[in-house]
Simulated scan of single mutants.
Amino acid sequence: MKNLTIPRLYCPFSSVLNPHTDAVKQHTDQWVIKFGLCFKEDFERYNANNYSAFTARFYPNADYDQLCIASDLVALLFIVDDHIDSQFAESAVEKEFALRQFIEKFMTVINPKIELQTTQQFENPVFIALADVWSRLICISRDEWIRSFVKEIEYIFAAAIWEYQNSFKQLPGVEEYLEKRRYAGAANVSLALIQPIEKNYLPEFAKNHVIIQKLSEAACNAICISNDLFSLSKEQLSGDKHNLPSIIKNEQNVTWEEAVLLTAEIHDTEVNKFIALSKELPSFDEETDQILKRYTNILELQMAGNIAWSESETARYPFTYASVVS
Rank of each mutant, 00 (worst) to 15 (best):
S71Q: 04
T255R: 13
I79D: 01
S15G: 08
H267D: 03
T314P: 10
T269Q: 11
A308I: 05
D228W: 03
E94Y: 02
H27A: 01
N221Q: 15
I161G: 07
E217H: 07
R57H: 11
A56I: 03
F127E: 04
Y64C: 01
D72I: 01
F54T: 02
S52E: 12
E204L: 15
F58Q: 12
N221K: 11
N18I: 13
H83E: 13
A98L: 15
I110A: 07
V109E: 07
T314I: 09
T21D: 14
E94A: 11
L262I: 10
E251P: 09
F13P: 14
E280P: 03
P12V: 09
I103D: 01
L193R: 01
Q252M: 14
A75K: 08
Q302N: 08
N3S: 12
Y155D: 13
L77N: 01
E90N: 06
L262D: 05
A98W: 05
A62W: 04
I248R: 12
M303A: 10
Y183E: 14
E280G: 02
T5A: 01
Q26R: 14
F39Q: 07
R294T: 05
K169T: 14
A75Y: 00
H20M: 02
L130Q: 05
L215Q: 13
A89I: 11
L237D: 11
Y321V: 01
Y10P: 07
E286R: 07
V109W: 04
D72C: 03
E265P: 02
S216R: 10
Q66L: 02
C68L: 00
V150Y: 00
D22K: 15
G173E: 10
K279I: 00
A98I: 07
S86Y: 08
E251I: 12
K25F: 06
N243C: 09
F102I: 03
P12I: 07
S15Y: 09
E96P: 02
Y64R: 04
R142W: 00
V260R: 06
L202N: 01
Q117S: 14
L130D: 03
A129Q: 03
I298F: 10
N47M: 09
S310G: 04
V93Q: 13
L244P: 14
I110D: 04
L301H: 13
Q66S: 08
A304T: 06
I79H: 05
H209Y: 09
E175I: 15
A129T: 08
E270C: 08
H20D: 07
K40H: 09
I225F: 07
R294M: 06
Q120V: 13
A53Q: 13
P19S: 05
I211S: 07
P282K: 01
V271Q: 12
K180I: 09
L277H: 06
N124F: 03
F43K: 01
I266A: 02
K2D: 14
P282Y: 13
A186G: 11
